[in-house]
Write a protein that binds this DNA or RNA. Structure first.
Lengths: 218, 218
DNA sequence: TTATACCACGAACACCTGTTCTGTGTCAAG
DNA sequence: CTTGACACAGAACAGGTGTTCGTGGTATAA
């Protein structure tokens, strides 16, 4: 069901007004902006906009309406940041902290990222890298690594792997080759490393790396 | 001038209410939330909040107030990401595109980041790195670099510098030493590089690096 | 003590605001 | 033509809402 010209104007006005003034308009403000003298007509069309899902109304409350729908999604969906638990620090030689199975809520530190980068937070967690041991993965001291928890990996995925025999964790691109695994450093100028398939355990896939060089003043 | 306990409660309530409901509260709604029976007392304290610059008031308008100021940014910042213009690609051997002086609006691509990472967008712009030429700065093909436009730099800042004699742009930590400049690669295992102070022109300071290894499905 | 801010309370008022009701005109289906 | 749905206008009303006024308590300085 399409919107009439008037309803579209109303919707645009409500959106713009709310954005500019920081509060929704009153019925009469809407009316005078689109050239409607009667409040009942505005009310009538507002109900239609609400029925179409473009706005939400709250009964008997002044300015009790808000824009939803596509534009709201752009605001609340695309713009509402994803919160990802920052589980701790990692360093070579230490196993990385993984989210436990029954963990539903993390009351520790969180990092916020836009949905443009991370559409949803399912199975994701973040770690802050300590030390220079991951330089060959182009990851520096202080970098934050966002990972997705998973056991397996596709060829070429950048993964956190636990090397049983060496007792250390590294971040490498992973390639299965027969019964061995090729671990390719992120840095293309560096040589790959080979390991027995039974000695590598994939802990998760690296999804995003954030390096904050400057804490900007507010 | 500090805020009284009551005023702080009021401010927090206004912020939360506005965020949750999509509209500012009325004087009476504020009053009942913080336990003030008289509207005049709320009005009185609202004027103080306005005087302190924490909120803006509009006279004789229902719900005519809105949160502003630095603290408001921290509150709204959780939901309102910073939009930074993605000016283009950079590669070694090419000058990087800089924001022009008169540029007020950029209608090209933008990247969104949370205010947790970037408090405000002033003077900031982003570039996507093309090729492997910045490997020694721990920056890979496809990485997005957020920079702050500026001519000078503090010692140790990670900067984009234009080397006149070599005709190329690099990202290095910069240290002034008498009449020469030490350009230190981000990678601590690599040797620094020295240049004549007259040959280096600082284009901007690197603030943030984002590497997206996986485009996650929505 | 008095004076003066500051902070608070309650009441009253005028206007704002959403709701509802009656009425009018148009247009297509019956 | 009649009917009904739809879109609109105007008026009236009850309650919401910002503002203002008078009052009083409490601290601090003169």
């Amino acid at each position: 069901m399409g919107l009439s010209d008037r309803q579209q104007k109303m919707y645009e006005f409500i959106s713009k007004f709310s954005r500019d003034k920081g509060r929704p308009p009153t019925i009469r403000e809407i009316g005078s902006s689109v050239g409607i003298s009667s409040t009942s007509v505005v009310n009538y069309n507002l109900n239609i906009l609400a029925r179409e899902g473009l706005i939400q109304r709250e009964k008997e409350v002044s300015r009790g309406l808000r824009v939803v729908g596509q534009q709201a999604k752009a605001f609340l969906g695309e713009f509402a940041p994803v919160q990802i638990p920052l589980l701790g620090k990692i360093a070579a030689g230490a196993p990385i902290p993984l989210p436990t199975e029954g963990m539903t809520k993390w009351d520790g530190e969180m990092i916020a990222l836009t949905r443009e980068l991370i559409p949803h937070e399912e199975g994701l967690f973040a770690l802050q890298v300590k030390g220079n041991s991951m330089i060959d993965a182009l990851i520096n001291d202080g970098d934050v690594v966002v990972m997705k928890k998973q056991d397996g990996a596709e060829n070429g995925d950048m993964c956190a792997v636990w090397l049983k025999d060496k007792n250390e964790t590294t971040l490498k691109r992973i390639y299965r080759e027969k019964n061995r695994v090729r671990l390719q450093p992120m840095n293309p100028t560096m040589k790959p490393f080979y390991a027995d398939a039974r000695d590598v355990r994939i802990q998760g896939k690296v999804v995003l790396v954030v390096r904050q060089l400057q804490k900007l003043p507010a």
